[in-house]
Design a protein around this nucleic acid. Structure first.
Length: 322
DNA sequence: CGAGTTTGACCGGCGC
DNA sequence: GCGCCGGTCAAACTCG
């Protein structure tokens, strides 16, 4: 009723959080959810369409997606001079890549929510025992965590990202033959969720949407304590990926698949940057650089073989298993 | 036996 | 108000 666009857009555009200021002044990354955009424009498409995934999106025959990726990904821009079919200039007209909008300060919303949610969890646990026939808390609108959509070229659905996830649901996606899976971080008191689904236009593209922030370090990626400037900054980026659970190059049972992974990050909702570092991030510039390396490959080929900074970031055994 | 997955049911939000 | 739909729950099940 009074919710949806109203609240969402308010969260996205009208939230005068320091985060927003940072974005507005520092990165100018628009504070609009791609979902909101889609809903606003009433695009009757599935999630993949919302994200603008199209055939050959990320490979050599890049075609501009729903949003104007050329503004976000400079190197792609050189390959994709043509604007998009659906433009949202106010959303994606900034030069910075979404992921590069790494913010060292956590979202006020997310941070403030954490303790509250921890308490709520306990309450909910009790309520859950009574089954869910009872209405959940109605006096409190459920606030959405910041979301971040991540498109990855991969043939495996569930990408390793350094965190452990528990699947808690699966739903058929409208207009798509591929189901959407819902995952939740297995760590207690960590409210991070993610949704994973495939593009039905390009089944090799996996869209992962992260929601929330991890409140703990990656269980599978111990943080080394490094002193090097570039390392620390790179770590902040990698840590960000881990914090958000972004898919990373790491061990896999089918490593060759990962060589084809390419990812595009899209900040979603609540005026938050995709790389909301939470507890560790700080160096935005290098984080941007790292992410550019991750996201932008003019050839669309060699990026992931050349791990670049990731070689400095990830334990060698993670990178070697390919 | 614990952790994770599957899957049908349920709930709430939202559009009509 | 009704129906659709996305998201979540939780029992049953599988796996190591």
């Amino acid at each position: 009723m009074e919710r949806k666009e109203g609240v969402k857009m308010e969260d996205v555009m009208g939230n005068p959080s320091p985060f927003s200021d940072c974005l507005a002044s520092g990165f100018g990354f628009p504070l609009q959810s791609i979902f909101d955009l889609s809903e606003g424009e009433k695009i009757p498409l599935g999630f993949m369409e919302l994200l603008g995934v199209q055939d050959s999106l990320m490979m050599s025959s890049y075609s501009p997606p729903l949003f104007d990726m050329t503004h976000q990904l400079p190197s792609l821009a050189t390959q994709a001079p043509n604007p998009t079919k659906i433009e949202s200039p106010e959303v994606f007209n900034q030069p910075a890549t979404p992921n590069s909008s790494s913010i060292s300060s956590a979202s006020s919303e997310a941070v403030n929510d954490e303790p509250v949610k921890a308490e709520e969890d306990q309450e909910e646990d009790q309520q859950k025992t009574k089954k869910q026939l009872k209405p959940k808390k109605t006096n409190q609108k459920r606030q959405r965590e910041p979301r971040f959509a991540f498109m990855t070229k991969s043939e495996v659905d569930h990408l390793e990202d350094g965190y452990r996830w528990r699947k808690y649901g699966q739903k058929a996606v409208k207009n798509s033959p591929f189901p959407r899976s819902y995952y939740r971080c297995t760590s207690t008191s960590c409210n991070v969720k993610k949704r994973v689904e495939r593009s039905f236009n390009d089944p090799t593209i996996v869209v992962t949407t992260y929601e929330g922030q991890h409140t703990h370090p990656s269980p599978l990626m111990p943080r080394p304590t490094l002193g090097g400037a570039h390392l620390s900054s790179a770590l902040s980026a990698a840590g960000a990926a881990a914090t958000f659970g972004l898919p990373m190059q790491r061990t896999t049972t089918s490593p060759s698949l990962y060589q084809q992974q390419q990812s595009f990050g899209i900040g979603i909702g609540n005026g938050l940057s995709p790389l909301n570092f939470g507890h560790n991030g700080s160096n935005n510039i290098n984080a941007s650089f790292l992410n550019e390396r991750r996201f932008c490959t003019p050839t669309g080929q060699s990026l992931l073989k050349d791990h670049g900074l990731l070689q400095d970031i990830l334990p060698s055994h993670m990178l070697k298993e390919e």
